[in-house]
Design a protein around this nucleic acid. Structure first.
Lengths: 216, 216, 216, 216
DNA sequence: AATGAATGAGAATTCATTCAT
DNA sequence: TATGAATGAATTCTCATTCAT
């Protein structure tokens, strides 16, 4: 047909790529299949991207870009830690339903295939959130909102670990199955997830020894 | 005599397979390379395993078997929740150093590649721990050791999420990089990790509203 | 106006084609690259030439045309054989420095790629020179200028062989290396080449048995 | 069929490769076609040779190896220059009929495709003959067998040029056509070629100025 | 008429699987 | 029974050619 590739076509190619890479991994996905599914020829794909690897990274970047922009919307503002946490959980729930492929792509780089993506992406992707979360916690500590006997970096790490696992649980097949094993049908209940996770987090950040509670 | 050789050789084959699959993923790993590294012929590999997929699953099963046996050692006994948690964290730290490939294999199935392993393994692998953890928590709730306003299944889920992320952080390239981004050099400090994570968990499981603490 | 541009552009296109074909051969050269280097679109190339093959032949024809015109300048006139030979050698030395691509193109058709060009070009290209050289020699024989016990066609053949090899030695990578292996640094010395080759030719065409010389 | 590749099969593969490369050049030849024609799978070809380039060089080396061994047979011995020349011409005539592909391969590297083979092979291939021929001529000069006012390296160069062109004329399509243009039907007459070329060479190597002859 | 992005057949290369020895 | 060379389908990537703009 020889129609010029529109911006949308190019976006569609990336989305198709993301879907295929998310499903089959960087090695398992097939460039010809992606092109065909996207309704273009392999040739154009190779006109825009030097090789499979470069195309994979383009898909990755798109995914991470979207992820980041979503994160930004939530992360901004001056809410208290738990308010923010709640907002993040809800955003993530809303977001995961449709855009699970982006999160799957993120999951792809966290797994197996060599240190390649570890060194390339970890600092870039995690750096910002790590700083922001740590900052939150430090401030909250100063403000007396949360306990002050902790290392904010570690707590930021645990906090993000929980959110990351939640994301994957909503999006990635294995994690979803696993979540169902743990939570059963309740896993579908978004409200319950919010409330339970918030309870967990609130407590975790609160200073109180067990005795105190019992004394009560 | 041949039997004997084969038994050892078979173990070596599986270990080599695990190493290669852990490094390159199910699609990226090369059967011929694995056989050569293991010092056997491809032919014999195909005598024992119908195809690459079957061999991969054998490697997976071996990995998960080892993981499970380690878990068992720690999970048994009648300790209180946090004591048990501490034991688990320490076991996992010890264990991760040498046997990272088993955990990488676990990580492999949690990522991308189709629903295949999700449906095959999730229930099997996670079922036991889910039940045990949930049981722990329910008992602790009854005993008054921890707060009683929570859903034990969700809390077991969060608890395992944190342990799972810790495992991956110790073993898988991307997660390691990420952990360093969050915790910096302190990530290497096993004692600090134990203490901070225990603080996090202890609090999380403890009932106390922020106000209470402040009133104090 | 467009016509004018096209005429220049066309020449540039052919020259670019010649350079690329000379460097990479008919199969190795890339039509898209040629068009880009020539500053035109592939489309226009295909407007003028049915396909790569036709374009290659156009480049070839241009090359051979230039070669022929150079030859004409030298071949004309009524000089004696060796005077003519000297003029030819010098012309060829002068000419080879800048226009090596034309000679490389000539070399391209003499090599490997099928009988295609053999049948197409040999008679056309070589016919004229063969006739002229043979005529020279026949006349010189009649005039008593050179020995008369030879077959003029064979001697014309040997004569042209030597000139052809000299051309290639000045222009084509392999032949140049080879000439250096034989002549060392002296290969660069144009005067020595002229004088030695003329000695060789003069003798070759001269009737004298070895004995005569020795008697002397 | 999965039959082990015999030595002969491997030789056949190389011969097929030589035929295809000789016909289509390094870029034009098709590895899959070569394998099929040789009656093996592409797989084995790539087991034995890293890539097309390596396989091409193997074909080249085989060709040059054969060429060299033929040369050796003739070059040895203590004959006088022209006796040796005659032997060489005859060997070359005999040899060219069947083994034209080896010479075509030689021709392939002398043409077009970049300096790659020029730098790789020229010194190696031409070095030996250059030294031997030059040595011959120097000795003949000392012995008073040939004129002593020449540069032996240049004369060795011209001598080899003539032999090389003869080879190509017997084997390579274009050169054959060209030879026919020059010599007509007589080109087929091996005896005449020997006698005319020897006359040419004998004279060329003999000292006698034109005047001498005329004085007569 | 000119452009150059798009096309897709075709070529190089890999690797899961087979089977003669 | 074990071997590992051989197989060839499948995959990545190229580039001559087309045709919408």
């Amino acid at each position: 047909m020889l129609k010029k590739l529109t911006e949308e076509k190019l976006a569609e190619l990336l989305e198709t790529g993301i879907a295929e890479f998310a499903e089959n991994g960087p090695t398992g996905a097939n460039v010809n299949v992606i092109a065909k599914k996207a309704g273009i020829s392999v040739g154009v794909l190779y006109k825009y991207y030097e090789n499979k690897e470069a195309f994979f990274q383009a898909c990755l970047n798109r995914s991470l870009g979207v992820l980041e922009s979503v994160l930004h919307d939530v992360i901004e503002g001056e809410d208290k830690l738990l308010v923010r946490a709640e907002k993040m959980i809800r955003a993530l729930q809303r977001y995961s339903k449709e855009n699970s492929n982006y999160i799957k792509m993120y999951n792809v780089i966290t797994s197996g295939n060599g240190k390649k993506y570890a060194s390339l992406y970890a600092a870039e992707i995690e750096g910002m959130t790590a700083k922001i979360y740590t900052g939150f916690i430090e401030r909250a500590m100063k403000d007396g909102d949360i306990r002050n006997d902790i290392n904010p970096r570690f707590f930021a790490f645990f906090f993000d670990n929980l959110l990351m696992m939640l994301q994957f649980s909503y999006c990635c097949d294995y994690y979803t199955e696993r979540a169902k094993v743990y939570c059963g049908e309740y896993f579908q209940d978004d409200e319950q997830m919010v409330s339970e996770l918030l309870k967990f987090l609130e407590s975790a950040f609160t200073f109180c020894r067990t005795e105190v509670v019992h004394k009560k």
